[in-house]
Simulated assay, not measured.
Amino acid sequence: MNVVSPASASTEPVTSDGVIAAGAYVDGRRVANIAIDEAGSWRSKPDHVVWIGLHEPETQLLKRVQQQFELHDLAIEDADHAHQRPKIEQYGDALFIVARTAQLDGDSIAFGETHLFVGEGYIVSVRHGASTSYKPVRERCESCPRALARGEDYILYAILDFIVDNYSPVLETIQVEVEAMEAEVLASAMTRAQIERLYLLRRDLLRLRNAVGPLVEVCRRLEHDNLPMVRPTMRPLFRDVTDHVRTVQERIDSLREVLAFAFEASLLVGQAQETAISKKLASWLAIVAVPTMIAGIYGMNFKHMPELEWEYGYFAVIGAIVTVCAVLFWRFRRVGWL
């Protein structure tokens, strides 16, 4: 799997109306850069495949694409309004697929969407929100015409595989932070800032899992269902993507469990520290109570207290106080309270 991190991903020029690239391919080789309004005619030529990439297109551009490929109104409506759940839908002989993308934006995860229209002789990708450019996918496919010559379903596989691969840099960055946080927890109780960060990490991981999870069903259908535009020879590749998605799920679950254990360990460390402090306070309180009690007794202003007339009474009381306090200190130290 070829992972391209968001930081190093190459970018593609985007026209004012949202077109990133539009090309016609024959036998895996680009034969022309085409205009959107010519896409339908190129697609109708024998053995031609039209590959169009759009980034946050305007409604009018989507309508033009719809006219060229006779796309379903509901699919166009979904592509025009983002915030869709990952899914796969069949409209006649065409497929409409939604996948969620993820990138690190500072200390949090930013999510985006990719909508894919796949039909006879064409594939259209529509990107919304945070997403790495698909230029590396196009370049990799064009560098291997034999693979690209397989057709639209191979391009679909390449894009889905790229989306899943780019979950890895996000998880690797989070894993480094989680491991550092886990080491700090064992050293001392977590601060408020650390607890807040732990909560944000668990929230982002949950959102990422919700974005990744439905892709398993999407890839499963591409692998097992007799869907149009997916040839039997492509099913092992989609099975590979399914395995990658499940691996990502397992990593997310593992990180969330580590964060949960880290929080529980922090609570235990904090409780242990509080218990140790309480023991120390109780020990010193018991030691201080001895001279306090004796001083309180002899501080009572009774007229008849025989010890007050004893010549060595003061020294005896001081000696008793020191002895009892020393015994208590030794005892508390021995049991580990001091």
Rank of each mutant, 00 (worst) to 15 (best):
E184Q: 14
S266G: 15
T292G: 10
L206D: 08
V322T: 13
W284K: 06
L227P: 01
R140S: 12
P46L: 07
R127D: 06
R203T: 06
E172G: 01
L200M: 03
S8M: 06
G119D: 03
G28C: 11
L74M: 05
D243L: 02
R30V: 02
A282R: 03
N166H: 09
F261S: 14
G129K: 01
A326D: 07
A79W: 05
D80W: 04
A189G: 09
N2Y: 09
G53F: 06
P136E: 08
T233H: 11
A289V: 00
V65C: 14
A262G: 15
H55W: 05
T132Y: 02
R239W: 04
Y157A: 07
W42M: 07
D165L: 00
L205H: 09
G23M: 06
L198I: 00
A21Y: 12
E311L: 07
Q273W: 04
V258S: 13
D225W: 01
W51M: 05
N301P: 02
V31I: 12
G119T: 03
G106S: 10
D73H: 07
A7R: 13
T11P: 01
A94Q: 13
A9H: 08
F69D: 05
P228N: 08
V164P: 00
A82H: 13
V258Y: 05
H224A: 05
S278Y: 04
P86F: 12
V4R: 09
S8H: 14
P145F: 02
R331W: 13
L156V: 08
A7D: 07
V98T: 09
D107G: 11
N301W: 03
F69N: 05
L95H: 13
F315M: 12
V258F: 05
S5Y: 11
V185Q: 03
E196F: 14
D17K: 02
K87V: 01
S254T: 08
T233Q: 14
V327H: 07
H55V: 00
E89S: 12
V50Q: 04
Y199A: 09
D225S: 03
G296N: 04
H48Y: 05
R29K: 10
P306V: 02
H224L: 04
V4C: 10
V49H: 13
R235I: 00
A282H: 09
A326L: 09
V176S: 12
E196N: 15
L255D: 09
N210G: 10
N301I: 04
V49D: 05
L95K: 07
V185M: 06
L198H: 06
V4Y: 15
E142S: 10
A32F: 10
A272N: 14
S278G: 13
R85H: 11
N33S: 14
T132C: 11
Q271V: 00
A99R: 09
E56S: 15
S254R: 12
G106Q: 03
R146C: 00
A260R: 12
